[in-house]
């Protein structure tokens, strides 16, 4: 696209230390671009939630991944009215419907309902066994005020490639 400029990209399997490095790199990029604090913080939250989800999930299925699979990536681009954060990772086909239903539910809500949904899920998460409340995607939609764009591309009969695109506009 004519108006798109890539600010930042990384391709490869993520780990916590790589995520830390990418965050430090993003701070350095911000020193050059001097984004408004609120835009920078939104992008940082989106980036971290995406990367943490991505690497924790991929680590959980790492031993099952076929050879030669597309590597996970993250890419941040400048677009006409703001920025787009795009990421991809392999996903087991058996996990698709759970994820897709979750995204569809999030995308159905307006700003007010999304906040209510987020608070409800945070509250439910306080004393559940799971170590995280599982609100990363809801948080992303809530702070960006944008629908979550996603796609799946089948790799084989067990895996597909899951791509996520989040827009952060400069004026919201």
């Amino acid at each position: 696209m004519k108006d798109t400029k890539i600010l930042f990209q990384y391709e490869g399997f993520f780990s916590h230390s790589i995520v830390n490095k990418l965050i430090r790199d993003f701070y350095e990029i911000n020193k050059i671009h001097k984004l408004p604090t609120s835009v920078f913080k939104k992008m940082l939250i989106v980036m971290i939630e995406i990367l943490e989800n991505n690497y924790k999930y991929v680590q959980s299925i790492q031993n099952e991944l076929p050879e030669g699979i597309n590597l996970p990536y993250i890419k941040i681009s400048k677009i006409a009215r703001g920025f787009e954060i795009e990421s991809a990772n392999p996903l087991k086909i058996e996990h698709v419907s759970l994820l897709e239903n979750k995204i569809k539910e999030i995308n159905e809500y307006n700003k007010v309902l999304l906040k209510e949904f987020y608070l409800k899920k945070l509250l439910e998460g306080v004393y559940i066994e799971k170590d995280t409340p599982g609100v990363g995607l809801i948080r992303i939609a809530k702070i960006t005020h944008n629908k979550i764009k996603y796609s799946f591309k089948q790799i084989d009969n067990k895996f597909l490639n899951y791509t996520l695109r989040i827009k952060v506009y400069s004026n919201t």
């Binding site: 940082l44 939250i45 971290i48 939630e49 943490e52 945070l122 509250l123 998460g125 306080v126 004393y127 170590d131 995280t132 409340p133 609100v135 990363g136 948080r139």
Partner: peptide, 16 residues
């Protein structure tokens, strides 16, 4: 200055 969503669960437990 930054809280990830996983941490919010534990901060809520402390507050509780």
């Amino acid at each position: 200055t930054y809280i990830n969503s996983a941490s919010s669960k534990y901060i809520l437990q402390i507050l509780d």
